[in-house]
Nucleic acid binder design. Structure first.
Ligand SMILES: NC(=O)c1ccc[n+]([C@@H]2O[C@H](COP(=O)([O-])OP(=O)(O)OC[C@H]3O[C@@H](n4cnc5c(N)ncnc54)[C@H](O)[C@@H]3O)[C@@H](O)[C@H]2O)c1
Ligand SMILES: NC(=O)c1ccc[n+]([C@@H]2O[C@H](COP(=O)([O-])OP(=O)(O)OC[C@H]3O[C@@H](n4cnc5c(N)ncnc54)[C@H](O)[C@@H]3O)[C@@H](O)[C@H]2O)c1
Lengths: 207, 207
DNA sequence: ATATATGTGTGAATTTTTTGACAATGACGA
DNA sequence: TCGTCATTGTCAAAAAATTCACACATATAT
């Protein structure tokens, strides 16, 4: 299969959510134009993105919302559930554990770990905070697919290394630090500081 | 000034954080190679990015870490503080209010608003939760520069509209929904679902 | 002083991404 | 059944982003 760009995947994920919205409103058919409108891009982009994976529309008609949603579900692997572990039971770690939407999307938080003795054993939304030292066993027992790093930046690389050793292949990192991982492991970033600073740039520029 | 791409700005923000790390370790000089290494990109990219804004290095020598940090500070507008308002005193809104790092970076949370009567008046880290209906006055009184949207997706566009009316020009949106705003307003997104689904795609592809 | 080594700054080349344009197709009404 | 209309799928063009590659500036050693 040809390599699909990251931007295309991101947009697929957005189409998926837009389709959900439409289906909620009982809309049965949608054009690339409408989909583009909803996501603030061009219709050519929508059609191009979809064309990497197949032909899902009918000419002169558009796309069936439910059918297209199902297709994207297959493409993105959302037809199944994924087991998620959170490392770091601080502010962000707890907020995420509490995030119900998450489960609805098929990402099930099975495990939350910390290294702080005073936190281990406490409950967060029915989950026991576990000892991160036992990460190898825990990841295996709970069959974790995806790990979320929510520890301070200084600890992030060390945590990532241990997750990789434990066999994790997919990481979402909330700490504002680039991680080095082997090529068969993917890391995505959620870096708020970057977005805030982009806003700062924008605001100072216009003066 | 020539239009600078968003990706360049994002990377500038990363260089800024990497420089911080180096300065912490008492490193006085850094090459584009090292900086690139730290952020997982190429050295040509680093030099190219910086070249959009000026010439900050010495040939054969590299960049002075402190001087370059200061330069980026000026470029991104981080030499000053920005007043931030949060809309939505739920899980994410509260976690953000509690996020100390934020203030250290010059983003000062002055205001947290909600529309839920039972929440208005409660305290979050010394801040009163205010009535979002009073957004116009509040934004003016507190001289808010940046608003963070942390309400359910369905409410996000309506909230954005009101923020725009109140004079806000920069928004960070945590709700998984594209926002329509006038051209003089910037919106950045923090969309976790997109990142998680990209990981899902990656995991299902390799099987 | 001079030579040498290092690493920047930058046009040019390359690659990637986005946009444009339109022939082809299917729905639908007469 | 045929004609009209809407909208896809895709090839080609344009634009944007990244990488290459090297002349040149500067630090340092001798
Ligand atoms: N709180 C926010 O709103 C927010 C927003 C954006 C980014 N972040 C980032 O997310 C990360 C976590 O932020 P937070 O506010 O939740 O921090 P926090 O201090 O509240 O929590 C961090 C947790 O990680 C644990 N920890 C530290 N080192 C560890 C290790 N080596 N192994 C296992 N656990 C360890 C700590 O015991 C603590 O419970 C930080 O990198 C922060 O920059 C936070
Ligand atoms: N919690 C998370 O970890 C998380 C992660 C990623 C994204 N998000 C997104 O962030 C947003 C907020 O999530 P949350 O978990 O904090 O939700 P939440 O339900 O805990 O909080 C939402 C808050 O917004 C308020 N609100 C609703 N409509 C409003 C309106 N029109 N005006 C003003 N206030 C209004 C509610 O009263 C509530 O206090 C959602 O869009 C969610 O998808 C949350």
């Amino acid at each position: 299969m040809k390599k699909i760009s990251d931007s295309t995947i991101r947009r697929m994920s957005k189409y998926y959510r837009s389709l959900d919205q439409l289906i909620d409103k009982r809309v049965e058919t949608v054009s690339s134009d409408t989909l583009a409108e909803m996501d603030g891009i061009t219709s050519a982009q929508v059609r191009k993105d979809l064309s990497f994976f197949g032909t899902f529309g009918k000419r002169g008609f558009g796309y069936n919302t439910k059918a297209l949603k199902k297709q994207i579900e297959n493409i993105l692997g959302l037809y199944r559930t994924w087991n998620v572990a959170i490392v770091g039971a601080g502010n962000i770690g707890r907020a995420l554990t509490d995030y119900a939407e998450f489960k609805k999307q098929g990402f099930i938080i099975r495990l939350i770990m910390d290294r702080d003795k005073s936190k281990i054993g406490q409950q967060v939304r029915g989950l026991n905070i576990e000892d991160f030292n036992k990460v190898n066993d825990l990841v295996k027992d709970e069959q974790i697919d995806i790990a979320i790093i929510a520890v301070p930046a200084d600890a992030a690389q060390a945590v990532a290394d241990k997750l990789v050793t434990a066999g994790i292949k997919a990481i979402l990192n909330f700490a504002p630090r680039s991680l080095k991982v082997p090529p068969d492991v993917t890391v995505k970033y959620e870096n708020m500081a970057v977005e805030m600073e982009a806003l700062s740039y924008f605001l100072s520029k216009k003066k």
